[in-house]
């Protein structure tokens, strides 16, 4: 029973899988309340069957990413006051990923694309070799600085309409990581990675919507990274290296 003197918040939460529906809950409203607080309240006090993910709850891990009032966000870093449209909040799972249950999505396709874009470091030295020396001021290292902080939360992937329109599109995170590695002078993948990202569903599919850049909680710009890949791939093609 909600105390009638307490302010309440109406929240619609997605329940079920792809064939599910929104269900409405009324929760107590507090100052400095985050969306994660709201979801946690429902699970702890109203319906224990609600499935959702979180871990650090302080904006470091990206596990709590969900769609809040239509936009992908980290729920632990989203204050209800900042996003509630009127007194209504809508919480749904991330877009463009299969729904496991309620607010939990299957992240496998996201990471499969990461691998397909050759988003893994390919070493060229062994423990017996000396350390690599990379000047922090070099252009390539500075390019890496702008992209390396990605923690794979899938907010950008969920926000990208090209992902929605082209199911095989590698997506902003995978391509951002590919660009990070393209600029890593220690990496030995070379042209194989450029080939992996050059396709109808690769970097050339980006239309500079900048939804990814708009929503990234780490303030990265996958748009800029993908533009870099487009340039690098184009130059390789012209030089006959692709």
């Amino acid at each position: 029973m909600i105390d009638n003197r307490e302010p309440t918040l109406a929240v619609r939460i997605w329940r079920g899988d792809a064939h599910g529906r929104f269900e409405r809950y009324d929760v107590p409203r507090h100052p400095s309340q985050t969306v994660l607080d709201v979801v946690s309240h429902v699970q702890q006090h109203v319906d224990p069957t609600l499935a959702y993910r979180f871990a650090c709850r302080v904006g470091m891990c990206g596990s709590c990413a969900m769609t809040v009032n239509g936009k992908a966000r980290w729920t632990c870093r989203t204050h209800v006051d900042a996003v509630a449209a009127g007194e209504m909040l809508e919480v749904a799972p991330l877009n463009h990923l299969p729904i496991v249950r309620d607010l939990v999505v299957d992240m496998a396709p996201f990471f499969d694309k990461w691998a397909a874009a050759h988003g893994a470091f390919a070493p060229t030295t062994t423990r017996h070799d000396d350390f690599a020396r990379v000047a922090p001021s070099s252009a390539q290292r500075r390019a890496i600085d702008a992209t390396i902080e990605c923690i794979g939360c899938a907010v950008c992937y969920s926000s990208c309409d090209v992902v929605g329109w082209k199911p095989a599109y590698l997506g902003p995170a995978a391509l951002n990581r590919a660009w990070t590695l393209v600029n890593d002078v220690r990496d030995g993948e070379g042209v194989a990675r450029l080939r992996a990202v050059s396709a109808d569903d690769g970097c050339q599919a980006c239309h500079t919507h900048q939804s990814c850049t708009e929503r990234c909680p780490k303030h990265l710009s996958p748009t800029a990274a993908i533009a870099g890949l487009k340039r690098r791939v184009a130059i390789a093609a012209i030089k006959g290296e692709l």
Partner: peptide, 10 residues
Amino acid sequence: NARAAAWRFV
């Protein structure tokens, strides 16, 4: 495919 996509872009 990579070459084709790259050339379409160019």
